[in-house]
Design a protein around this nucleic acid. Structure first.
Length: 208
DNA sequence: GTTCCGATTTTCT
DNA sequence: GAAAATCGGAACA
């Protein structure tokens, strides 16, 4: 199987807040045996380090957040609220913590498999939240620390569809209590697959 | 539509 | 012991 346009390590080895909005419209690809699932990234959040009280890395290195300090372009998968996995892609060079949380994707390919992992759910709710997309695409602890810059079980590519114009908006991040002043959630405005609950102070970020 | 609750890991108090 | 980068179901309106 050929996978054109895989996003390389250098893309991720930069400021997390710069990387996050640039991941929008790219394709998250999940390979399981001969099956392929693809989701267009439509909502993300940036998490940094000591300057970011909402980040897992705010208080320094722990066993859980260790991937945030290691190589960029790798998966940081953690288990939360006793029920759900969340997928992040690590950013910044080794030693400097950072990660982008993938909050929502738009199903592009492999809908049948996604529906099998999330039965009885309408298409718009298949992957419109961080815990939902990991379940629909079978992303769990087994993929923690996976390299996402090469063709493996999980990686990101450029969009393989014709470039259509879209508006990027930003807001405060969701489900946090501190760091609400930072507008580090980025999403495609009016995309029906973005998770519903709005952040504070939504506003236009840029068009692309 | 809303609010409340339970699932139960990791980290911090 | 409590809160957290969440979700789905139940109860209520």
């Amino acid at each position: 199987m050929v996978h054109p346009g895989i996003i390389p390590t250098e893309f991720y080895a930069r400021d997390t807040v710069k990387v996050a909005p640039q991941l929008l419209d790219k394709w998250l690809v999940r390979i399981i045996g001969n099956n392929k699932m693809v989701g267009r990234i439509v909502e993300v959040e940036a998490y940094r380090g000591k300057d970011d009280p909402a980040s897992h890395a705010f208080r320094g290195l722990t066993p859980r957040n260790a991937p945030m300090y290691r190589e960029p372009g790798h998966a940081y998968v953690y288990f939360t609220y006793g029920n759900h996995y969340c997928l992040n892609i690590t950013t910044q060079k080794v030693g400097k913590p950072g990660a982008v949380l993938i909050r929502a994707v738009q199903p592009v390919e492999g809908l049948r498999l996604m529906r099998r992992f999330r039965p009885g759910v309408p298409e718009t709710e298949l992957t419109n939240g961080p815990g939902k997309l990991t379940k629909a695409m079978k992303i769990d602890k087994a993929l923690n620390e996976q390299n996402m810059t090469t063709a493996g079980p999980l990686f990101v590519t450029e969009s393989q569809h014709r470039g259509q114009k879209y508006d990027i908006w930003c807001s405060s991040r969701i489900g946090i209590r501190e760091g609400l002043d930072k507008a580090w959630r980025f999403f495609l405005k009016e995309n029906p697959y973005v998770s519903t609950r709005g952040g504070l102070s939504e506003r236009r970020f840029r068009s692309a």
